[in-house]
Amino acid sequence: MTLLHDAALAEAFDRGAGSYDRLVTLNPGYHAQLRRSARRLALAAGTAAHRVLDLGCGTGASTAALAAALPHAKIVGLDASAGMLRRAAAKAWPDRVSFVHAPAEDLGTAGVRGPFDAVFAAYLFRNLADPDAVLRTVLELVAPGGRLAVHEYALSGRRVDRAVWSAVCGGVILPLGAATGNGGLYRHLRRSVAEFDTAPAFGDRMRRAGFDRVDVLPLPGWQTGITHTFLARRPPERPTGAR
């Protein structure tokens, strides 16, 4: 099958929204690892002024991780799938959390405006037809000195990690996807990871987009070498006349 993108991918997520939360709970450490990546943003938890964009929020698992890590920040969750977003919005949230239905490629039309102190994107970039364009958009949305955290399936480049991913897909992910009646989405998941950047390559992609202080950090458990946190900063603006 070809990889799903844009409207076709949003439609597949719409169909899978009802079973998505149940399936991800079968992944050991799924929510704990999202919280770890959210904490790695290293924003001061006691500061109420922070404004954070959760780009590709899905059913809200990443939003919950941000809300726990940043108990006073204003969080905007955004997703292209109306079905996933309905599941997210139906959950109990504090008033500081809001949701917007829009693709990551068209934030301006949806009225999403910066500056944000941070942007968080979980399991998003390997699904984008043009990740470079979205990285450039994020760079403009983040305030100078602000941060981007990407929590993503990106293989280390070692042969053993690719073999583990293939085995988990064949033995767990694809059978579960078939049981939901939405096997195409989970076949896409397998290929989207296998064909995406390695972790070092995605770090280089962030640098080319204009971010600095890029760190590629592994996550613990069975996904070591398969899932990483990517941290980066929009460079601060230099004072007028500075060299």
Rank of each mutant, 00 (worst) to 15 (best):
D6V: 05
A8H: 08
A10H: 11
A10Y: 08
E11C: 10
R15G: 12
R15N: 12
A17K: 09
Y20G: 10
D21S: 10
R22Y: 06
L23A: 15
V24T: 11
R35W: 02
R36Y: 01
A38P: 00
R40H: 03
R40I: 01
L41R: 00
T47W: 01
A48M: 01
A49S: 15
H50G: 01
R51C: 00
V52C: 01
L53N: 00
L53A: 00
L55D: 00
L55E: 01
C57V: 00
T59C: 02
G60H: 00
A61C: 03
T63F: 03
A68Q: 14
H72M: 15
A73I: 09
G77T: 06
G77D: 09
D79C: 02
A80G: 15
L85K: 04
R87F: 08
A88S: 10
W93S: 07
P94E: 11
V100G: 13
V100W: 10
A102Q: 09
A102R: 13
T109W: 10
G111P: 11
F116R: 11
F116C: 12
F120E: 14
A121M: 09
Y123K: 07
Y123V: 11
Y123L: 14
L124F: 06
F125R: 15
N127C: 13
A129D: 14
A129K: 15
P131W: 02
A133S: 13
L135F: 07
R136H: 08
T137L: 14
E140N: 13
L141H: 02
A143W: 00
G146A: 07
G146F: 00
R147G: 04
R147E: 04
A149M: 13
V150E: 03
A154S: 15
L155T: 05
R158I: 01
R159S: 12
D161K: 07
A163S: 14
V164T: 13
A167C: 08
L174C: 04
A179Q: 09
N182D: 14
N182S: 04
Y186W: 13
R190I: 06
R191L: 14
V193S: 01
F196H: 04
G203Y: 03
G203L: 04
M206Y: 00
R207W: 02
R213K: 09
R213Y: 05
D215V: 08
G221I: 06
G221W: 06
G221D: 02
W222K: 11
Q223Y: 14
T224A: 12
I226A: 06
T227Y: 08
T227L: 14
H228T: 08
R233K: 12
R233I: 07
R234H: 05
R234Y: 05
P235Y: 01
P236S: 09
P236F: 00
T240W: 12
T240D: 11
R243E: 09
